[in-house]
Structures are given as structure tokens and as C-alpha cells.
Computed example of a mutant assay.
Amino acid sequence: MMSVAAHSAPAGFGSPADIWGHILNDFSNITEPAAFAAFLQVLMIDLVLAGDNAIVVGALAAGLPAEQRKKVILIGVLAALVLRILFALIVTQLLQIVGLIMVGGLLLLWVAWKMWRELRHAGQSAGSEEVHGDENSGLRPAKSFAGAAWAVAIADVSMSLDNVLAVAGAARDHPGILIVGLIFAVALMGLAANIIAKYIERYRWIAYVGLIVIVYVAGKMVYDGWVDPQVGLGTLIA
């Protein structure tokens, strides 16, 4: 059963008091199946996509000298943190517009397809010492600091949008869980992405579980984007 607060939630996160209210409301009802499922989905999405981000950034920086490599990786992490916050503010507003939930679901299906291809066709490439697990990314490292920084920036835009779109889709009816999911994603990128990347490369099934979750969220967004009484395309046709 969908939370009433979800459909009455403002387009953005609101004031700090509103944000805290959303978090308290959702986590006081975390034992409800819908809220608990959304929370688990957000955790899995964040784990998989944070590790994926670290692998890509490390692989792109692998061809640089150690000092420049560390700078590029730091730039990649900081850019990803900022972009996740920016995209979260934008996406949570856009999902209130009729039809855009379906568009977001279709975009997320494309993300899942791209992720599936990467999992199947991963190849050996130069890895960086700073990131464990990026040796199987199949990406060619950049040959200059400027080239690596530019490639990382482009990759960060794509991967940050993927992360926020997936988390927003999973927790659309639970704004408090969405907010905590965003904070968790930021913390993972800053503190534990390297560790997660190592385990994802060692245990590939983790990435496949994450892929299944993303496909489920995308399918649900497409379905809701048609039948939702407030923002579904079906309401326009009806």
C-alpha cells in the first residue's frame, strides 16, 4: 500500500525540518513491507553503483603517474558527490510531472542493459593501484591528466544520474528513505567505494543481484508511469 505522504510530498525535499520529518515518518514504519523493500532496494543499488563508479574512475586514471592518478581519483569522487546531490534535487522534482516517471523507467532500463553488457563483456585493462578491482573494466586509461579528468567528469555525470534515478524510482513513495539513500550513496563514494569495488569484482553475483533490482525498479516505474492516478500517462488518455 502506497504511503499517503509520498503523493502529498512536495516537489523537492523541503526545509531541514521537512527532511527530518520525512526520515522519521518512513523509518518509524520501516517494518511495513513496502517501506522495508524500498530500503533494501536503495541499499543494493547504492552498493553496486558506488562500486561501479570507483572501478570506472580507477581504470581511467590508471595510465597516469601516481601523483596525478590520486588527484584524478579524488576529483572523480568529489564530482560524484556533488552531482548526486544536484541530480537528486532535480529528479525528485521532475518525477512529479505527468509522464516523466515512465520516461525515467525507460531510461533506467537502458542503464540496466548497458550494465548487463559491461558485466558480460568485461575485459582486462590497466588497473590503478589505488582502486582494487578495476583491472577487469575493459576501459582504456587516459594518457594525460586533462584527458583523464575530462573522461572521469563525463563518466561521473552518467553514473551519478543512473544512481539517483534508480534510488528515486525505488523510494519514490518514501521520501525519507530516498533522502537516507542519497546520504548513504555519498558516504559510500567518499569512504568505501574502493572496498565495494574489490568485492564486486571478486563476487560477480553481487553485481547481478544489483542489476535485477534495477530492472525491477525500472519496470515498476514504467508501470506506475502509466497507471498512477496523479502522474501516469494513462490519466491523460482517460
Results as ranks from 00 to 15, higher is better:
residue 125 S to G: 12
residue 135 E to S: 13
residue 157 V to A: 02
residue 155 A to V: 02
residue 64 L to M: 05
residue 83 L to H: 11
residue 110 W to E: 09
residue 121 H to L: 13
residue 132 H to N: 12
residue 83 L to C: 01
residue 161 L to G: 04
residue 52 D to W: 14
residue 107 L to K: 00
residue 105 G to L: 06
residue 126 A to N: 12
residue 43 L to K: 01
residue 39 F to V: 05
residue 52 D to H: 15
residue 41 Q to W: 10
residue 164 V to P: 06
residue 72 V to C: 04
residue 46 D to Y: 12
residue 85 I to L: 12
residue 39 F to H: 06
residue 132 H to R: 13
residue 143 K to H: 13
residue 63 G to R: 01
residue 67 E to K: 08
residue 87 F to E: 10
residue 133 G to K: 02
residue 159 M to V: 04
residue 114 K to M: 09
residue 113 W to I: 13
residue 65 P to M: 03
residue 166 A to I: 00
residue 147 G to H: 01
residue 80 A to E: 14
residue 65 P to E: 03
residue 124 Q to T: 13
residue 151 A to D: 10
residue 143 K to F: 04
residue 115 M to W: 15
residue 67 E to H: 09
residue 84 R to V: 08
residue 76 G to W: 06
residue 109 L to E: 05
residue 71 K to P: 02
residue 101 I to V: 10
residue 45 I to Q: 09
residue 151 A to S: 07
residue 103 V to S: 02
residue 59 A to Y: 03
residue 128 S to K: 11
residue 159 M to L: 09
residue 39 F to P: 01
residue 146 A to N: 10
residue 160 S to T: 07
residue 92 T to S: 10
residue 141 P to E: 09
residue 73 I to N: 06
residue 80 A to Q: 15
residue 71 K to F: 00
residue 126 A to K: 07
residue 82 V to A: 13
residue 70 K to F: 09
residue 72 V to K: 01
residue 42 V to M: 04
residue 57 V to Y: 13
residue 55 I to E: 15
residue 137 S to D: 13
residue 58 G to Y: 07
residue 151 A to T: 00
residue 83 L to P: 06
residue 130 E to K: 04
residue 161 L to H: 00
residue 101 I to D: 14
residue 105 G to P: 00
residue 88 A to T: 13
residue 160 S to N: 09
residue 81 L to K: 14
residue 138 G to K: 11
residue 116 W to I: 04
residue 84 R to N: 10
residue 135 E to D: 15
residue 123 G to S: 14
residue 141 P to Y: 02
residue 91 V to I: 04
residue 159 M to R: 11
residue 46 D to N: 15
residue 144 S to A: 03
residue 65 P to A: 01
residue 73 I to L: 12
residue 39 F to N: 07
residue 89 L to V: 03
residue 119 L to R: 08
residue 163 N to G: 11
residue 93 Q to M: 09
residue 72 V to T: 01
residue 121 H to K: 09
residue 43 L to A: 05
residue 90 I to K: 05
residue 122 A to H: 15
residue 117 R to F: 08
residue 57 V to I: 11
residue 117 R to C: 04
residue 71 K to G: 06
residue 46 D to V: 12
residue 119 L to F: 15
residue 47 L to W: 15
residue 114 K to T: 03
residue 81 L to V: 14
residue 157 V to Q: 04
residue 52 D to S: 15
residue 50 A to M: 07
residue 118 E to R: 09
residue 100 L to G: 04
residue 165 L to A: 09
residue 110 W to H: 03
residue 140 R to P: 06
residue 113 W to Q: 13
residue 156 D to L: 10
residue 117 R to I: 00
residue 131 V to F: 05
residue 49 L to S: 01
residue 143 K to S: 11
residue 155 A to F: 01
residue 112 A to G: 03
residue 41 Q to F: 06
residue 68 Q to P: 07
residue 166 A to T: 00
residue 42 V to R: 02
residue 145 F to W: 12
residue 145 F to P: 00
residue 124 Q to K: 15
residue 132 H to C: 06
residue 152 V to W: 11
residue 121 H to D: 14
residue 142 A to Q: 03
residue 144 S to C: 02
residue 133 G to R: 03
residue 92 T to N: 07
residue 98 V to D: 14
residue 103 V to I: 04
residue 102 M to E: 05
residue 55 I to M: 10
residue 167 V to G: 01
residue 123 G to V: 08
residue 61 A to K: 06
residue 159 M to I: 11
residue 88 A to M: 14
residue 96 Q to F: 12
residue 55 I to S: 11
residue 120 R to D: 10
residue 132 H to E: 15
residue 94 L to I: 00
